[in-house]
Structure formats: structure tokens, C-alpha cells
Design a binder for these strands. Structure first.
Lengths: 197, 197, 197, 197
DNA sequence: TATGAATGAGTTTTCATTCAT
DNA sequence: GATGAATGAAAACTCATTCAT
């Protein structure tokens, strides 16, 4: 049984998801016990298994919602390239900061669960493809350098931004003023593309 | 009792390290059992604990050797900036490729073991500091743009390269011709720094 | 609350019994879950407990009906001994074949549930007593050998037939042409009793 | 790890087997918990799993020894038919009585574990084949009736004896003086075969 | 009556670590 | 040093039964 058929069931399921997210964020995936989740959700132990078959399955659902959230906050097209890059970076930063704890767990689970790594890969591919499309457009319009492969550039720059935020927001890698990091990421992106500053 | 006192002891210890590396690479840290290691090393179960107090401890030692290897292959100074960047990137790539399996485990363990994450952080800091020093020098010499903070740039570019290689070599994230990725990483680095090409 | 008070209730109860029999036959008693039964009966989970207090209780009721069926098909007296034995054996065989799946479960449950084993014992005693009565009559009439204890003979022959059918029809113990088995059982019974063939 | 490599290990394994047999006999297979076994064997909980992967596996090993015991006590050929049958029946009876408790469990496990049922089937086939061989010989020698199929007769008679003992010794099915049952089984066997008394 | 959610005791199994030989 | 047995604390998961609606 996974899908609740009543309003009451839906509420319980939601409480379990909320509890799970809280506990995962505090303890990480591996150190989380089902008891922790049910205790936090104020639900009987067995109720967990009424709605989820395994610990992985709750996490997967939370991660899906997370990916959804990261996606939907990507800014729409419209502005000038430099400005659009800045906005996209900031939006990603905001989303990352909002979900930093979960992103840590995402990384953790992806590091040992191949199925989940695959989901993550697909989600990343969507993100990269979106950038690549923009880059291709700007190349056609002669705004940015046309000598580089837009796909590959998109992958590399996404890696730079994602991992920089990961080290900063998740691993708390210290590095002085971090407003500077954001500005630097914008600048590096622009220069790498050959955007006139 | 950890340090072997006899020649024979030293050999046993080494076999355990070798066995551990093989098994870690095949199964990952979490799925590795002490038995797997001792079986692979052709050593009695109890012998593991003669030389290592915990499963973590063998891994830490292997990781230290690994970090050592990654470090010592960084190329010496001397060439022109663009060429030096290229060489450094290639050297890092070669080292990463050589150790890709272990790098996967490194990421895995860092994702849940705070102590190890800290070691990794320090090792990364050394690496970043080395680049930053070079950038500072080139800025002083007027070879590259002086408007960016060299520390921050070094961090961001290191993140780009490290994570790109991680996704490619560890997670096997496909992306067409991968020679192109290496060239792109070189190019992006140079442009981001404002190096005349 | 076990006895349905309304027409509708009686129907639901019957559907549960039908569903239970189907599932028991497919999965055996131990592997049957209440859910399986209610799903098969197209009835809500809770409805099971409206009519039956435990999983055992549905089974007991089904078994009672089964024993009833096995009993009512025993042929009436009347024919000559040899013919009557043949008819009785065939009738028992037909009933067993019809209910082979359930007989397997009967054996299963009797093997761990003392209460049920007792019910089965009583039912078997009725069956044995019926044969014994016939044997006693034939002894009085000088038709069969009078040197054996009719009760004991009835028990032994019943065991032979019951278990032969069990091995053949339930455990699918192969043994060549099985029409032969039936004929052999008839013959052995007749000879054992000292019936002139 | 299943096979102990040291003397000490072999002793522990044996204690577990002994403890398991005792507990199985007292509680049956289903109601036996691993704890019961280890407590009885005066061994740590985990030691069970040092030597056996599952509860089934200990039981299988015990059953193999049991079958072995039942087999090896079958009497050798040599005597006259009637006497040989009597001896074989008594030997089987003695073995059954000695192992009645375990035979109950054997029946229980065979009723829900297909793998075990298969082992049992093979063991029974050996037993039946042995009788059938003797019957064939006696038919060739004109000692017993040649009109019946010796295989089928062997199966039916084995079923009679096995199940009679089962009901008597395991289910304690009462039936007056039970010396009489043994004599009756001998007599029925002889008559069924057409042995001159 | 019917429905489906809630409950939690009970069991198996795993495996790092400790010991005895 | 080397070997392999012994230990027992976890933890996940099941599912009959009870409740609330």
C-alpha cells in the first residue's frame, strides 16, 4: 500500500515525509533510523511501512520534490546575456542555500546508490541542456565566441558552479568573503564564454 | 598494536592494504566487509585487527597514499602560463584517471565521515593555494587580469576541473568526445584568467 | 460479531470464504495474508474482521465444509463387499481429487495447530468407525476372515488409502500409471481382508 | 562460513545441532526461535549464524542425519518372506518411535517447504524401491502372487505403515492395544502380498 | 456494515570488534 | 604474529489485530 485512499491517510503520509526530511537533514541518510522518522512524525513505527517500502523510497520522493524545486526556480529567458547569467547563478545559489542540507544527503546517497545516481544524472542533464541551448543561441547571434562546443562548455561551467556551492554551503569550505565567490562565478562564466564585459 | 615489528609483519600489513584497495574499488566502502579484505589478502580474519583498529583506518591510510600520489604529479613551474595550465590539467587528469575508482570511494566516505571530510579539505586547500600563488605571480607580472581575487578564482577553477573529471570518470557521465572536454577545460581556464590566447 | 444479520452481510461473509479458499489453495495457509484474502474477495480489509476473529477461524470453517463434503460422498451400503469397497475407494478418490489443494492445507495446518489436529482426528475416527462397522458385519456373516481386529484393520487400511492419495495428489509423487494405483488399492484391501476374489 | 576449521569450532557446531534438535522437538519448527536454540546450546546468539545461514539449514542437516538413521536400520535380507517383513516392520517401528518427535517436524516442514518435500520424496523413493526389489524377487520365485505391480504395491504398503505409525506415534491417535497394530500391519502386508500364512 | 488507517511487538539477520588458542 | 571462533548490539521489516470514520 503506498497511495493513501483517504484524506487522513494523505495527511499521515505527508507527516512522514516532513519528519523524514527533518531527520535526514540532521543526521544524514545513513545515520537515520526508521524510528527517528516515525518519532519525529509522531506516528507509529509500522505506519512508516504503510506508506513506504524502504528508507530509500522516502528519500527518493523527497529528492524528486527537491529537484523539482531547483528546476522551477531557474529564471526565464529575456535579459541580456551577462545579466541573465547573473540571475541564473543567483537563483541557483538561492535554491542551493535553501536546500543545502538536503543537497548534502543527495550527494551522500548518490555516492553509493547507483539507481539514485542515475536519477541525479538525468536531472543534471536537463539543467545542462538548458544552458547549452542558450549558449548555442548566443553563438548564432554572434554575441559569444563560437569556437567552443556549447554542450561541453555548459557541462564544465555547471560543474564549476555546482561544486563551488557544494564545497561552500555543504562542506562549509571557508574562503573569505563569500559574496566574492558569487561575483567571481559570474565573472568567470562571462569571461569563459567570451562575453564583452 | 599497529606498527609491525618484523619484516614478516610488514609484508602482511602491506598485503592487507593491497587487498583493501582492491575490494574498496570493487564494492565501495560501505559494501566492503572485513572478510572480503582478508580473503583477498589471503590473510586470517584476525590479522586485520593486528594492524588496523577499524575499517576506516585502512581506508584513511590508502587515501593518504592516494593524496600523496595526486600531489607529487603536479608539474613544476617553468613554462609559459597557457602551457603550464595545460600541463597541470593533463597531469591532474592522468592522476584522476589512474585513481578514479578510489576517488569514487573518497567522495563516498567524505559524504558521511566528518573526520575524513576534513582531511580532504586540507588536501584540497594545498592544491588551491598552489594555483593561487601562481595566479598572484602572473597578476604581479601583468600577464593576467588583476581585477579578480586569485584565491577565489583558484577555488572556482579547481572545483570546475575536479567535478568535471568526477562526473566523467567516476559517474561515467557521457558527453560525446572527451578529448574535447579536456581541451575545453584548458580553454575555459585560460579565458577566465584573461590570458591572451 | 460473527454472524451476519443482514442479507448483504451474509453475501460479504460468503465472498470472504470463497476468496480465502482460493488464496489458501494457491499459497498455503502460512503464506496467506489477510490482505490477499480481502483483495481476492473484493472486500475492504477491515471487513474480514467483521466476520472472522482470526485467520485460523476462516480456515476452520472451510475445513468443516470440506470434511462435510468428503463425508457425504461416501457411498451407501448395499452392494457385495468387493464391489462396495471398490465404490468406497473410488468415491474417496474422487472427493480427494476434487479437494486435493485444500487437503494439502489441511495437512499443513494439522501439523502445527493442535486444536485443528484434534478436529481432524475426530473426523477420521468417524470414517474409520464406519468401515469397522462394515467389517464387523462381514465377519459375523462369515464373508471375511474373523481373526483380525476390525477396528485396527480399518485404521490401517484407511491410513494406506489416505496417505497414498496424499502422496499422489498432493505431493505429486510420481509412480507410473495411476489408474493402476487405484486398482491396486482395491486389490490390497480385498486381499488384506481375506475376501475371495 | 559453514564448515568449522578447528576442533573447537566443530564442537560448537555440534552443540548447536544438539540444541536445535531438542528445541525443535519441544516446540516444532515454526515456534522455534533462533534464541531458543542458542540459549539451549549455551552459545552466543551470533554463533548460530557462524555455522548456519538460516533456521531451515540446521533443520535440513538434522533431517539428513535422521533419514540416515532410518535407513541404516533397515534389516538385511536373508530370512523367509514372512519373517523378513515382520523384522522390517519392527525395525521401522523402532526407528520411528526413537525419532517420533522429529518425524512430526519433518512432516510439518515438508508441508510448506517445497525444497524439503523434495528431499523427503527422494528418501521415500529409496525405501520403496528396496521393498519393490524384494517383492519382484519373491514373484520370480513364485512365493507371492505375481498379478500385482510390485512398485505400486510397495508404495501402497509403505504408505500404510508410515502413516499408521505417524498417526499413532506422532498424533497419538488412540486405538486400543497398539501391539495389535503392529501385528495387524504385519498380517495385512503378508495377506496383501498373497503370502501363505 | 463497510472501509481503510494505525499500531507495535516480534524475529531474523548482519557484521564490526573482541578473544582464545 | 597468526589464526579463526565468539560475541551481541543494532536495525529493518512483517503483519495480525485493533480502531476511527
Amino acid at each position: 500500500m503506498t497511495e493513501p485512499l483517504t484524506e487522513r491517510g494523505a495527511r499521515t503520509r505527508e507527516r512522514i515525509l516532513d519528519g523524514a526530511r527533518e531527520v535526514f537533514e540532521e543526521q544524514g541518510f545513513l545515520d537515520t533510523r526508521i524510528t527517528h522518522i516515525t518519532r519525529r512524525a509522531r506516528v507509529a513505527y509500522g505506519s512508516f511501512y504503510t506508506y513506504f517500502p524502504t528508507k530509500e523510497s522516502v528519500f527518493f520522493e523527497l529528492a524528486d520534490r527537491l529537484f523539482e524545486d531547483m528546476h522551477t526556480h531557474e529564471p526565464a529567458a529575456g535579459a541580456a546575456p551577462a545579466e541573465r547569467i547573473r540571475r541564473a547563478n543567483r537563483a541557483y545559489y538561492e535554491a542551493y542555500r535553501r536546500n543545502a542540507r538536503m543537497m548534502a544527503i543527495v550527494e551522500q546517497v548518490a555516492s553509493f546508490n547507483e539507481e539514485f545516481a542515475e536519477r541525479r544524472r538525468k536531472h543534471r542533464a536537463l539543467h545542462v541542456e538548458r544552458s547549452a541551448r542558450a549558449f548555442r543561441g548566443w553563438q548564432r547571434d554572434g554575441i559569444i565566441d563560437a569556437s567552443l562546443d556549447p554542450e561541453t562548455v555548459a557541462r564544465a561551467l555547471a560543474a564549476m558552479i555546482e561544486h563551488s556551492l557544494y564545497l561552500w554551503l555543504v562542506h562549509d569550505d571557508p574562503g573569505g568573503d563569500n559574496e566574492v565567490l558569487l561575483d567571481t562565478l559570474d565573472a568567470l562564466t562571462a569571461r569563459a564564454l567570451g562575453l564583452p564585459s
